[in-house]
Design a protein around this nucleic acid. Sequence first.
DNA 1: ACATTATGCGTAATTTTTACACAAAAGTAA
DNA 2: TTACTTTTGTGTAAAAATTACGCATAATGT
Lengths: 227, 227
Amino acid sequence: MSIQQNILVAVDAVVFGYMNANLHVLLVKRKGSTFHKEWALVGGFVLDDEPLTTAVKRELKEETGVQLDYLEQLYTFGDTVDRDPRSRVISVAYFGLINSSKIVPIGDTDAMEAKWYPVNELPDLAFDHSAILSAALNRLRAKLTYQPIGFDLLPNEFLFSELEQLYVTLLGKDIDRRNFRKKIMSFGFLEETSLFKQKKSGRPAKLFRFNDLKYRELESKGIYFDL
Amino acid sequence: MSIQQNILVAVDAVVFGYMNANLHVLLVKRKGSTFHKEWALVGGFVLDDEPLTTAVKRELKEETGVQLDYLEQLYTFGDTVDRDPRSRVISVAYFGLINSSKIVPIGDTDAMEAKWYPVNELPDLAFDHSAILSAALNRLRAKLTYQPIGFDLLPNEFLFSELEQLYVTLLGKDIDRRNFRKKIMSFGFLEETSLFKQKKSGRPAKLFRFNDLKYRELESKGIYFDL
DNA sequence: ACATTATGCGTAATTTTTACACAAAAGTAA
DNA sequence: TTACTTTTGTGTAAAAATTACGCATAATGT
């Protein structure tokens, strides 16, 4: 078998972070010849002997230094704009989340190269990255309602009101605080800590923790988590 | 930008058909040098200027002559066995369904090259095709419960008992005939025809038809279809 | 005509979801 | 120290959805 192909394989990552009660995406300013100085998703070409997820993590490390808490394959975009005029590129897009307490503020200087953008204040993006980002947003919102994925966007210990706020922000619809709490607690993967957190005013609130082990145990029993 | 890559891009299709009250998969017997005479999914290399779905349809036509009623991207398998020892291959897997009345019996001769296999009597498969098939089965089963995808496996006109049987077979759990019917009918995308079908014995049953337009209208209103 | 097979309904019990209000624990300002 | 504001924490009743369940109808075969 002797196949001659001229298609390049790339990976792109849509990485979401949650800060200031808002969803953010990690973008980098391109330095290459194509789309020079434009904002784009983190990504790049896959090495010959490199697994796809390894490629994603490598690019992420090289370009931003960020480490992921959640990563899954999103979709493969193959019928799109070329990166290099001489060759077609197909891009395997990934979708990642990062724990908000691990977020390193980057790109606040003038010589910035990577930056967290609020999803409702996005700049124009290079390539078809707007389409990829849009697909990732849909996936995130859909997944949020049947998989406890929101915890990967919060710090390890968080207030119930923060969790609630996250859902309100990402799903864009109101939640009844009491019913929400009842539902989440009924799943059994959240545990109270002995810690409290005091805001500027109001009653101090318990901090909660997501018990990943417990979650996996429940999941393996085929239990569903509809919100 | 001058990238030298040695990765080949292929597509593979897991095509499901439903016949004799059983789910089947379309397999082909390989003729190439690698995995010669072994059974495999339909697939092949993507042409340089060819969209991915076009490649899937082309391979399908070339190798089996089958036309699809439903096609969606499944997953990209990239960390797997090489097809060609000289190069790495990543494969974008697709997932397709075919209307059971369009199924052409193939491969019943001795010189067969393509064949419908019942999913519970599968032969060993070439490459990592077992893993791909398994992912497709999971996707099919999951999707069946929130999207009216089962109709693409049935003839245009079908009995309610056939639809019910399909769900029982694919989901592997019992269904209350009356509740099932109520639920499906409540969605509003099934319509009665004036036709009847007579089995060997028993009361003749109405034939139903899936109204795709109506479905899309409902779907665009954001209505969900949980089973 | 009688037994057998499969279709086509309707209603009551149970479970899940939704709606809704008030007390408790802090800070702040008079 | 008291009154006011802010935020957390909980329970119950109404409504909706799901589940369980039985019997009449329309054919075939003997």
